[in-house]
Design a protein around this nucleic acid. Structure first.
Lengths: 136, 136
DNA sequence: TATCGAAATGCAACATTGTTGCATTTAAAT
DNA sequence: ATTTAAATGCAACAATGTTGCATTTCGATA
């Protein structure tokens, strides 16, 4: 996987410490992270607006992607263009509330009603993750 | 389909005008509706808190269900227990921004990684609806 | 390396949605 | 008609998203 700085350069984005840090934190995480979780793991103290705009830029450039569970729960993970994986489903654990990309669960092919065209799909699966289902 | 008042009775819920109105508006709509869209179609002027709690109660009793597209866009539609349909996918039109239940698009059977258990699935399909794709 | 313009940042302010506590009102059982 | 548990309205607040604008910083160029 490429380095954060390198990724920013490839997309002609300024290499600021905020953007670099966000990418680095997300890359080193095993689950998708929320804005506050990412802030906690960053040394610099950035303004919320800056954070928000950085996420927006990174999403627009397909460096990270945004996963929304219900509403009010927003998480970020590396995008397919960086990981070289396919479009995938997301798993939300009802117990530990962690969100993971299910790289091996390929999006199903669907037949839409006549006249409908598809551009995007979002599949959220809720349940218990392997760690939490062991504890029960 | 049963009448709103009757549905409330079946769930041992008080038949208040707010709840009755919400169900009536949702039943007569062809698409899922947001809180503000439902308010516009109701005569009574209810407090936001009351609205919020009414939705919560109706969702908990599986009379309506909540559909979240991205975040910040929350819509409601009748639940399967009322419509007698199966679990289904939802369609969001990027053009007219309407949300529809795709009753004929059955949720796909998925194979999760070992140790993961499934309790719920949400499938949102984005694209152009039949009306909007005709116009282009 | 110094300069400069465009882009990013920080701050203030605000909108929307979700949420709780509490006093008041209402539904519906008696 | 009375009574009580539930629903409502109000106030207040939290979290997230959003915009405008002055300031700072990146990085291209001289």
């Amino acid at each position: 996987m490429r380095q954060p700085i390198e990724i920013l350069g490839l997309h002609n984005l300024k290499r600021t410490s905020c953007r670099e840090g966000i990418i680095r934190v997300i890359m080193s995480a095993s689950t998708a992270l929320s804005e506050s979780e990412i802030r906690e793991r960053l040394e610099g103290n950035y303004d919320r607006t800056t954070f928000y705009r950085s996420f927006k830029t990174l999403v627009e450039n397909k460096i990270i992607h945004k996963i929304v569970v219900d509403n009010q729960l927003v998480k970020y993970a590396l995008d397919n263009s960086v990981t070289h994986k396919h479009e995938h489903a997301h798993f939300y654990c009802n117990e530990c509330e962690r969100v993971q990309c299910l790289d091996d669960v390929v999006m199903p092919a669907l037949k839409l009603p006549t006249g409908y065209t598809l551009t995007e799909m979002e599949l959220i699966i809720k349940g218990l993750c392997n760690q939490c289902s062991c504890k029960n």
